[in-house]
Amino acid sequence: MAKSDNKLKFSTGAVIKEPGSTLKNKTGGWRAMRPVLDQSKCVKCGTCWMYCPEGAIKKDDKGNFVIDYDYCKGCGICANECPVKAIRMELEKK
């Protein structure tokens, strides 16, 4: 089943010297449901940012919260927790 991965580099002691390198692993593909944030309803409280298990919600330069679909797994916590119901879950179109 598993073969040697020719692209891998093997460090002494399997030490990983690239902090935060799971960023290369885009988990957005896991998503079945897609959260859609309505900026007009958003009160910028940061609740979604706080509760996202992925750290996939960020604040942009304008102070708006945006969802990073590269990593969002579509769990729906943000929509469930949003105090003003500014996030709705839609079926992911693949």
Binding site: D5, F10, G13, V15, K17, P19
Partner: peptide, 20 residues
């Protein structure tokens, strides 16, 4: 210099570490 020690090695890499 934050490194990670003791990661999980999958079947695609475990053998190489033992070989080392």
């Amino acid at each position: 210099e934050p490194i990670t020690m003791g990661p999980i090695a999958f079947p695609d890499s475990f053998m190489e570490f033992k070989k080392m």
